[in-house]
Write a protein that binds this DNA or RNA. Structure first.
Lengths: 171, 171, 171, 171
DNA sequence: AATGAATGAGACTTCATTCAT
DNA sequence: TATGAATGAAGTCTCATTCAT
């Protein structure tokens, strides 16, 4: 679904057209537009997790693991700006249900362990893991936006962002 | 304007009602709903800047300055959850014009210098100042959300978030 | 479309109701109220041209041709007062586009030749054909209005109006 | 009142502004927008009648009288296109009351006599005077429009139009 | 199962009119 | 008397959803 470009504002008519199906057909798969948005959110997160898992597979040390997750996140985001934009809008909208958010967490449970390990001795050591995750994503989203805007500087942004993350989390 | 609670989704009818005026009255002050949203965005940013300026006034060292800005940001956000929610939605929407964003920067120009000084020797030293600002806000917004959700832990979140920021930016 | 009776002032709600469809349905066929008005204008002109063509078919001499066009025009107008009223309002409104006006001319191109022949030796001989056409319509519209108001005198008005036209154009 | 340019569509706010008074002030002089439109219609007709009376004063023969009325009408119209446009829109709108139309007739009663004399032996001899008047105006309005569009040909249109009128009415 | 025309509630916006100053 | 801010009904148009085919 490349309709991500349109974001929340897209009408079901446009979504259907861009998906190559009739308007009515949409509602055979999603009872509601909100349901569709939840599925879209989930499927974008799924793509993102797949990308991160791939780059993460070979990493050995904790720092390498985190860096590979970070790089996976950023590069996927730079490559999928429409999806990122949709994700950002969906995230702040109140359309996404708690259930969907829970399902997303299930997608990549290992990430919990990593982030646990990563903060175990730093400033975040007695904060919940969710806080570290959220900070990770906040830094990554921002880095991603700058990298996407200046593609030829993407590597520099990615690297600088990672340093902020690593120093911030582990010191 | 406390209508911030409704966010982007609020209809002009609801906005007007919640402001205690007739729907037509709204359009004597804002030619368009978009214009209203831009003004709302600006005025929220203005309140936020005022809060930050107050706490910032007495700080001496750079670290104290940054910490007071950080604290000002977080505490204001925790105290104004509706405004923060509106801000987040407005920020990712494409309704806010470049002109409005420019006006917001004018609100607190000193912040540029501080962030310049703050990153001068760290990982961000050769990235544009806007990148540091955006990372600051990303960390602050996230911290704010957790602090707002668990008010009795607000101080701990604020402090932990600041450590991440300071270590990340200056090391 | 018999809604012609309402004229320009009719709201889309009334137009839809009088057409026996929902208001939204209107906008599946006409992107805009203005587009609808243009189509209405065109379709009224089309009916009118059809009426004129019918009566015109058998005429031999130039005078007979013009008279049959004239009669066709007047009788159609008397029979369709709502359409005429709509037409008059649409004509002076600035809603009708140049493109629509051009399409209308295509409806009955022969009329150009006739009017050319008709004025070739009279007062209008060195004026553009459009001027003669416009005068024809001006006289016909007025005649039509009086004929419609006093139906039992319709034939007299029609005949008197034609004499004014014929003497005026050819002498 | 030069607001004539705006026509019927003009809002009371625009009318007030263009008249140099406050919006509320308008309603101290005209109870209703419709009343204002009726007065506007009347006052435009008054200007027009004044123009016609001036040129008419010196005419001797019937033909000279009619020609001077005709010329006065056309030249006034060419000089006041905004007023003419407003007049055309007001005429076909159903806003103008019978009473206003009656008052307009009172403005220039002599015109009745002239038109009576003018048609006494022609095609219109047994039609009501109002029919002749209406035809006069229809021809004049059309002539006016062409003259206004091509000002350097105004004299030719005026003269050609008059010939159509005179031949049509008196033969 | 898939379609897409039809729907009508509701969105944003305009504007004639009122009324406190 | 003149003002202009406030009003709210009404207008045009959009869109999520339904349903006959």
């Amino acid at each position: 679904m490349v309709i991500a470009a349109q974001g929340l504002g897209a009408s079901t008519a446009m979504i259907a057209k861009s998906a190559g199906v009739a308007e009515g057909t949409l509602f055979r798969y999603f009872a509601t537009k909100d349901e569709l948005l939840n599925e879209l959110y989930f499927s974008i997160k799924q793509s993102l997790c797949d990308a991160m898992k791939t780059s993460y597979a070979q990493a050995k040390t904790l720092e390498d693991q985190v860096r590979s997750l970070w790089n996976g996140y950023i590069y996927w985001g730079v490559a999928n700006p429409a999806a990122i934009k949709a994700l950002n809008q969906l995230t702040v909208s109140d359309k996404i249900t708690a259930e969907t958010r829970a399902r997303v967490i299930e997608l990549f449970p290992e990430i919990q362990e990593i982030s646990g390990a990563c903060v175990s001795r730093g400033a975040l050591s007695d904060r919940p893991a969710a806080f570290a995750d959220a900070l990770f994503m906040a830094l990554a989203d921002t880095t991603m936006q700058f990298a996407a805007q200046e593609p030829d500087q993407a590597a520099e942004y990615t690297s600088a962002g990672f340093k902020v993350l690593w120093q911030g989390f582990t010191q």
